[in-house]
Each structure stands twice: as structure tokens, then as C-alpha cells.
């Protein structure tokens, strides 16, 4: 397994946000984490990236224990996140935002090739590369967030709510690109409230409720799971 989380507890002050969650992501997989608002999905992502220290539990990445590793070292190790709300540096140009993704890497031919690759995936970003990131539309900002994360050449790409606030057509487009990224060899862990989309694209998925994982299975299985359908797919 590329990423393995064992019995993770995370506290915000006295409030416990995660209750002993365990999950794993295998190389080349798309794994989805679905659940309602406040279920602990983003906290899980923050813990994987190192922005939140777990109080107990273990995170291993590529066999290495990274539980106590600094966030910037985790990027070097191969974990990069497109965070919830996209986290665009609004005062930087689109291109500067992309260079931020490559902050830990050496400048050079390889990096420029990766930049071209991102521009190929998202031609809109190329058109707007000199524009401040804050002037992009929601969909373009999401593309920028994903493109920026790709610039770090991650082994594991963490996507937190990539479909949030986007029109249905754009959502389909973003998920299409996510599949493409996976096909090019990047493993993906995806947090989504749009369970329908997430489950139909993911190889496997976990369902979170109030800080615990309550169900897991293949995307296809969970799509037809009555409890999941009832709670997350809006089908009675």
C-alpha cells in the first residue's frame, strides 16, 4: 500500500475530530472519501499532509512512517494536496501559482516540461498564465489548484472537494481529468460530497460519519449499498 493510516485520532483542542480511523490507498488507485459536512474528511486530508498532528495513530507512506514528518518534507516525499476551497494565491499570477507547486523542486528543463504538461491538461490556464489567480472563475481556480499540485510531481495526489461550487458540466470535466491523471501514474485520494460522481469514478471508497469510518468497499458496491444510497445519493 502506498498510503496507510492506522487508528488515527485527531483533536482540535478538547474536541475529537477523528476517532481511530484506518484507511489505505494502493498504488495507482483512485480512492474516495465521502461523507457529510463535518464528518472529518478534510481533517483526515490535513493530517495526511501534516497540517494537523494526530494525537495517536500512525501514517505510513511508501513504507516510511511519516506521522511526525514536517509538511514540507511530505511534499518532497511525494504527497501534494489541492486543498478544500482551492487555496489559490490570489495575488500571484497563474504561472506563479504553478511554480509554487514546484517550490521544492529544482528549476530546469524537467520543470518546464511539467509546466507544459499542466498547460496541455488545462489550456485555459495557459491563456491566463499572467493573470492574478484571484481573477479566475471557480472552475479555473480548481484547475489551477490541481495543476499546481501536479507541479510537485506527487506520487499521491490529495484532492479535497474538487467539485465544490462547480456547474455539473465542469464537474464532469474535472473528473475526466482526474481519471487522466491517474492513468498517467499518479495515485489519487479524493474527498467528495458529490458521492454519485466520486463513487462512480473511484476504485474504492470509504464513508465517514462524525469522525469515524463507517463503511468501505469498491466504488461500485457502495453505489448500490442501500444505506449509502439512502444517506448520500438522495435516493429513497
Amino acid at each position: 500500500m502506498l498510503l496507510e493510516i492506522e487508528n488515527l485520532d485527531v483533536h482540535y483542542g478538547r474536541i475529537q475530530a477523528l476517532h481511530g480511523i484506518s484507511l489505505s490507498v494502493g498504488e495507482g488507485e483512485i480512492v474516495a472519501l465521502i461523507g457529510a459536512n463535518g464528518a472529518g474528511k478534510s481533517t483526515t486530508m490535513r493530517a495526511i499532509s501534516g497540517l494537523r498532528r494526530p494525537s495517536t495513530g500512525r501514517i505510513t507512506f511508501g513504507g516510511e512512517d511519516i506521522t511526525k514528518m514536517r509538511p514540507d518534507r511530505r511534499v518532497v516525499a511525494g504527497i501534494c494536496q489541492a486543498p478544500e476551497g482551492r487555496g489559490i494565491f490570489s495575488g500571484m499570477t497563474v504561472q506563479e501559482n504553478l511554480f509554487m507547486g514546484a517550490y521544492t523542486r529544482k528549476r530546469g528543463a524537467q520543470l518546464n516540461a511539467d509546466l507544459d504538461h499542466v498547460y496541455m491538461l488545462f489550456p485555459r490556464l495557459k491563456e491566463r498564465r499572467r493573470q492574478p489567480g484571484g481573477t479566475l472563475s471557480g472552475g479555473e481556480q480548481q484547475m489551477l489548484a490541481i495543476g499546481r499540485a501536479l507541479m510537485s510531481r506527487p506520487k499521491l495526489l490529495l484532492l479535497d472537494e474538487p467539485s465544490m461550487g462547480l456547474a455539473p458540466m465542469l464537474i464532469a470535466q474535472i473528473f475526466q481529468i482526474i481519471l487522466e491523471i491517474r492513468d498517467q501514474g499518479t495515485t489519487i485520494l479524493l474527498v467528495e460530497q458529490n458521492a454519485q460522481q466520486a463513487l462512480s469514478r473511484a476504485d474504492r471508497a470509504y464513508v465517514m460519519e462524525t469522525g469515524s469510518i463507517t463503511r468501505e468497499g469498491t466504488g461500485a458496491d457502495l453505489l448500490v449499498d442501500p444505506a449509502v444510497r439512502d444517506a448520500y445519493l438522495g435516493v429513497a
Partner: peptide
């Protein structure tokens, strides 16, 4: 936070 996610120490 996002800076940290991009590997800025």
C-alpha cells in the same frame, strides 16, 4: 496553510 501544502517551510 496552502504554502505549507506546497512544501514551504
Amino acid at each position: 496553510d496552502t504554502a505549507a501544502l506546497m512544501g514551504v517551510n
